Computed example of a mutant assay.
Amino acid sequence: MEMITGRKVLDDSLPDDETHLVTIFRRNMLDKEKFRKFVDPTLVLSTESWNSLLEVSDLARHCTAREPSQRPDTCHCVNRLSSLVDQWKPTNVDEDDDEGETSEMGLHQQLEQWRSDDFTISDSDTFSSFNMPRR
């Protein structure tokens, strides 16, 4: 919700009825035109991107239901979001980006490249990185 709106979860500088992002987000989702004005104005959205944003927003709305039994489980969330992965591609490529050509790839392609990279971490590095005792 923070990324979609560009707002903080709690913002005491706003009027009382707009302080809590979850409440106002859920309220604005009821009216698509109102919601369009509520979305971070720095986001440049094509029709396809707008539809994807609405899908992610709807999922966020469900994830913040008052009753835990009404919230989707993680598997459901992953399934809904995974269908959007192939569509995601950065709109602006930063020339100073250390990632090189990966910044022009879609998220799914970046994930596959990351998985195929030939680096490994030894068990001792893993344990020392997380300050966890060896067993």
Results as ranks from 00 to 15, higher is better:
Asp17Cys: 07
Pro133Leu: 07
Ala60Leu: 15
Thr120Arg: 13
Trp50Arg: 13
Cys63Thr: 03
Thr64His: 04
Cys75Gln: 08
Cys75Thr: 11
Thr64Met: 02
Glu2Pro: 05
Lys8Asp: 15
Arg134Gly: 11
Thr120Ile: 01
Leu43Glu: 05
Ser124Ala: 13
Gln87Gly: 05
Asp118Cys: 01
Glu99Ala: 14
Asp125Cys: 07
Ser122Ala: 06
Leu45Pro: 02
Ala65Ile: 00
Leu53Pro: 03
Gly106Leu: 02
Glu2Tyr: 03
Asn131Tyr: 02
Gln87Trp: 06
Ser69His: 08
Met1Tyr: 00
Phe38Pro: 00
Thr120Pro: 02
Lys89Asn: 10
Asp96Met: 09
Arg115Ile: 15
Met3Trp: 08
Thr102His: 10
Leu43Pro: 07
Asn51Asp: 08
Thr74Asn: 00
Cys75Trp: 10
Asp94Trp: 00
Asn79Val: 09
Ser124Asn: 11
Leu54Val: 03
Glu99Cys: 12
Arg27Pro: 05
Lys89Pro: 02
Asp118Leu: 10
Pro133Asn: 07
Pro90Tyr: 04
Phe127Ala: 07
Asn92Ile: 09
Arg26Met: 14
Ser82Gly: 06
Pro72Asp: 02
Lys34Ile: 11
Glu95Met: 02
Ala60Phe: 13
Leu45Arg: 02
Leu30Thr: 11
Glu48Gln: 15
Asp118Trp: 07
Cys75Phe: 14
Phe127Asp: 09
Glu67Leu: 07
Asp31Trp: 12
Gln109Tyr: 04
Trp50Tyr: 15
Ala60Lys: 07
Leu10Cys: 10
Asn131Ile: 00
Ile121Trp: 12
Arg61Glu: 05
Leu14Cys: 05
Asp97Ile: 00
Gln70Lys: 14
Met132Ala: 10
Arg80Trp: 05
Thr126His: 11
Thr91Trp: 01
Leu54Asp: 00
Asp58Arg: 14
Glu104Cys: 08
Ser52Tyr: 10
Ser82Pro: 04
Phe35Gly: 01
Asp97Val: 01
Gly100His: 05
Lys8Ile: 06
Leu53His: 04
Glu67Thr: 09
Asp123Ile: 05
Glu55Cys: 09
Cys75Glu: 09
Leu107Trp: 01
Arg26Thr: 15
Lys34Ala: 15
Asp40Gly: 08
Thr74Lys: 06
Asp117Thr: 10
Gly100Gln: 04
Gln109Thr: 15
Leu81Cys: 04
Glu95Asp: 05
Ser82Lys: 09
His108Ser: 12
Ser69Asn: 12
Leu107Met: 07
Asp98Asn: 13
